[in-house]
Design a protein around this nucleic acid. Structure first.
Lengths: 254, 254
DNA sequence: CGTGAAGTTGAGTATGCTCAACGGTGGTGG
DNA sequence: CCACCACCGTTGAGCATACTCAACTTCACG
């Protein structure tokens, strides 16, 4: 199992690796068990062993690019540590983030000729990389494992549908509430407190994910604080105070 | 190969089957070759034979429901004829259409416990239905076929990403232009004229797909006509007059 | 403790929505 | 076969949500 460390600097405004930030998400990153990358769909110990044979481990500094949109989609990744964003850009610079990935998520499935989006490290992060060609061979050998890949894809498709509803029909308030609850659920999945959130991404990232302006994110969060729905200790450190009310808002019931 | 005709009436405002409309899309519907359902990803004759063994043929009248959101996702469909819409509803009635399906498209992959959306016939249409359990068995037997299912899912994910960009960041003009070009491409795939479109869905469906109001669809189309980008013989009969300009608008370059 | 990036707040505005009236088309019944 | 009616689509006027532009504040890092 080789270890590759891709050293590409992505955007000018992005910081260069800083040792401090390498560990502040999933303290110590070295505990990158592939198991992490699997809880979503319930891969068995046996599946993991097979996958491990063809995987390489890769690390990325904040802002680094895992792969670019349209690049040949010859690798699939599973995130083991940190936060990754999937980014689509328009010629004039408008940016849409189609999703954030946390430990346990698969990355790079969406493709059609090339990748459907660029993938960038939000925090320092680590991932396993699987060459698609070897994955294909493996799948032919273990069709039961392949069926699990189908299940992962089905799950991801369902998530994309939710995002489409959010972007097509929800108000700014509903979008932000939905997002906070999403972060909460994902934190819970990783065994972290579900009502004390550490926001790993910037307001700009949140805005580009929710299809609004950064100012709208700020205003809405302030609004929620005013309604005692959340507490904001610091910008990146938010407490959920009334999850039920937030859920009502998220689904448009309030 | 059994033939099931599900006779569920979906919404009150939807018409009951009418013989005339059963045939006006893909004259004659009886020519429902599974091959139709396969050009996207290039299934081989052999794959089709295997799939045919476990499929049943189903027909739907305009407005009928193929399946409901949250229902157990135990069937996957391939559309052979007509137009199908994927619908998500919010409690207060807001509606988002996450996509339209044409002959050759697969349906029902997006699921997580249950289906991620309801599927409804826009026009009269026909489909093949594959029980997931039997599909699973088949896949274990023919892993090469299963890999093609993964490819279909990857393609669908890429499409969902495009829709996310559209809904998150594009203006109304850009959305409508993108949609017209999408219809054009899909028509071309089916061997139909690519600049003389037959719009099979209502303005309301278009609006709910593009995340705008129906009035905005009307206004934008009128605008495009005024700019000589399109011709509108009748509401459902649109000619593309300047595909290049439309493409520029669609990607935000104009 | 200074500096620059990130986040918040405010004021004014624009895009697209809502509400409403009008027009056309197709299907149905006389 | 024609006429009516209902529904779908179009157009218009006013308005609201969220954006843009700009100033100010806070925080992280050196």
């Amino acid at each position: 199992m080789a270890t590759i460390n891709i050293e590409r600097i992505s955007h000018l405004h992005e910081a260069v690796p800083r040792e401090r930030r390498w560990v502040d998400e999933e303290s110590p990153c070295k505990a990158c068990a592939l198991r992490h990358a699997a809880y979503v769909i319930g891969l068995e110990e046996e599946d993991l062993r097979h996958l491990r044979e063809i995987s390489s481990s890769v690390n990325f500094a904040p802002g680094q690019t895992l792969f670019e949109e349209h690049e040949a989609a010859d690798r699939i990744f599973s995130v083991t540590c940190g936060t990754v964003r999937m980014v689509k850009l328009m010629p004039d610079g408008r940016r849409q983030i189609s999703g954030f990935l946390f430990p346990g998520d698969f990355l790079g499935l969406a493709a059609d000729e090339g990748y459907a989006y660029s993938a960038e490290a939000v925090t320092a992060c680590a991932a396993f990389s699987y060459p698609v060609s070897r994955l294909h061979q493996l799948m032919l050998k273990y069709p039961e494992l392949e069926w699990k890949l189908v299940a992962i894809a089905r799950h991801e498709l369902a998530e994309a549908q939710d995002q489409i509803l959010l972007l097509g029909r929800k108000t700014a308030r509903e979008r932000v509430a939905t997002f906070l609850l999403l972060l909460s659920q994902r934190a819970a999945l990783r065994g972290k407190p579900e009502d004390s959130l550490t926001i790993t991404m910037s307001r700009e990232d949140m805005a580009d994910y929710l299809g609004v302006a950064t100012e709208t994110i700020s205003r809405t969060l302030t609004e929620f604080r005013g309604e005692a729905l959340i507490g904001i200790k610091q910008a990146k450190d938010i407490t959920l105070r009334d999850t039920v009310a937030l859920a009502d808002i998220a689904e448009g019931a309030a």
